[in-house]
Design a protein around this nucleic acid. Structure first.
Length: 425
RNA sequence: AGAGGGUUGGCGGAGUGGUCGAACGCGGCGGUCUUGAAAACCGUUGUACCGCGAGGUACCGGGGGUUCGAAUCCCUCACCCUCUGCCA
């Protein structure tokens, strides 16, 4: 969430930033927050002075009682009734105003950084790098949803029967490939200095709010009935929330964590005819890298994370392009995001397999994740995360790009993890 | 799951209704002393919000209540410890 101090001191920049996201009423929205902030402060001043008066009265009564002046004490008690009522109503007013301000801020997205391209849709995203050659496939090449049936390695019908659409079963070499990809990604992250974490996959409301999924994306998460908990849509949520209400020291930085979890997404409204097979699932596995860094180093960290993901895809020999998301396509909480899209030859499509973002202080402000500086002043840290990688789409691209007439060739780096080098009949 | 005990500042640990943001010790920071260091001594040392400032307000696990006044009493939730039970 944006800091109220930032909105106050850099109003023009904030308006400009939100406009970049295509929010037309940005100025009115921010003015509304500032108005709430103003009355919040006024109410607090009034409340504080009322409480100060009541405190003084109470001390005075204490003194009177101790000196034995019972009658005076009793009459002084009568005088406090009004103050008490006043304080109570001001308190309520303050709580309401704080709540309103909070709600308003929760619904304002992050300000894109200056390097984010202008634009309103995915068409305006900027391709900043491309790597690899599109493979030349044989004449009978197929999309992965046909290949998985042919080799019987992933079963959507079975998933449909047991769970629902978008919950496939991975079988045999399909299951082993998932495991191989996860292990490969985790080992690479480990080598890059990330601490491996196995977090819970169910989180509470506070966690969902702190990383920004709530209230913005409530409809996209699976909620647990009765317990106000949610299945995680990404390991970002539990892993970043480790640092909720935490005060770090500069010597602790950077923090680098990696987690491998299933991710659950309702994907409400996004089901279409072009979304087939592994392209979009309700449950999928993902290795996620998360960093907490000093504001001065976060963009260097973002660059390193982008390079890390690029390295993974290069070793897997998957052609990819890196996309700098435009203002209109940027996620709610991100200040800047680079998407990795892998070319999947069987369906002739670019599949998003990673999204690497810097959230600057947006999440840290909700998390109350701060750092104690050398000057003993506390400041908000920057959080970052990226997929490294989202497994099913990578799997789809591997199956499609490496298909031969005789079978599917497994990328060299995965062979030692998978225990086989070919999928064939 | 049941019974009992507990949760206080960076740490340890007092405090059971008033002057307590909280004794004391340790640690940290500054100083005196010393060629330097240690020891000793003196001072200082939480966070957030509001205020130009003086200063004010809130916070003793979370939330609510009683009271003129709550770290202290009551309710509730969470967590920890001990004993009993159950279970991958």
């Amino acid at each position: 969430m944006l800091e109220i101090a930032t909105i106050r001191s850099q109003f023009g920049l904030a308006v400009q930033g939100l406009s970049k996201r295509g929010i037309k009423e940005a100025e009115a929205l921010l003015n509304q927050v500032l108005a709430l902030d103003k009355s919040r402060r006024e109410t607090q001043i009034e409340l504080d002075s009322t409480l100060a008066e009541a405190n003084n009265k109470a001390r005075e009564i204490g003194r009177l009682i101790q000196t034995g002046a019972k009658d005076q004490a009793e009459s002084a008690k009568q005088e406090t009734a009004g103050l008490k009522a006043k304080a109570r109503s001001l308190q309520q007013k303050l709580v309401d105003l704080v709540d309103q301000q909070q709600q308003a801020l929760y619904n304002i997205p992050n300000i894109p950084n200056s390097d984010v391209p202008n634009g309103s849709t995915a068409n305006d995203n900027l391709v900043v790098a491309e790597w690899g050659e599109k493979p030349a496939l044989h004449a009978q090449a197929k999309p992965h949803w046909d290949l998985i049936k042919q080799y019987d390695i992933i079963d959507f019908e079975l998933g449909n029967k047991v769970s629902g659409a978008g919950f496939p079963f991975y079988k045999g070499k399909g299951a082993k490939l998932v495991r191989a990809l996860a292990n490969y990604c985790l080992d690479q992250a480990d080598a890059a200095g990330y601490l491996e974490i196995q977090p819970p996959v169910i989180v509470n409301q506070e966690s969902g709010t702190a990383t920004g999924q709530l209230p913005d994306k409530e409809g996209q998460m699976y909620a647990i009935s009765d317990s106000e908990q949610y299945l995680i849509p990404t390991a970002e949520v539990p892993i970043t929330n480790i640092y909720r209400d935490v005060l770090l020291h500069t010597k602790d930085l950077p923090i680098k964590n990696v987690g491998f979890t299933p991710c659950f997404r309702r994907e409400a409204g996004s089901w279409g005819s072009d979304v087939r097979g592994l392209n979009r699932l309700h449950q999928f596995d993902k290795v996620e890298i998360v960093q907490v860094n000093h504001p001065e180093h976060s963009y260097q960290a973002l660059k390193e994370m982008v390079e890390h993901v690029a390295g993974l895809l290069q070793q897997l020999k998957l052609p990819y392009r890196i996309v700098n998301l435009c203002g209109g396509d940027l996620g709610f909480t991100a200040a800047q995001t680079f998407d990795f899209e892998v070319y999947s030859a069987g369906q002739d499509k670019w599949l998003e397999v990673s999204s690497v973002s810097n959230f600057e202080t947006y999440q840290a402000n909700r998390l109350k994740l701060r750092c104690r500086g050398e000057d003993k002043k506390n400041f908000l840290l920057h959080t970052l995360n990226g997929s490294a990688l989202a497994i099913p789409r990578v799997l789809a691209a591997i199956l499609e790009n490496n298909q031969l007439e005789t079978g599917i060739k497994i990328p060299d780096v995965l062979v030692q993890y998978a225990g086989f080098d070919t999928i064939s009949l």
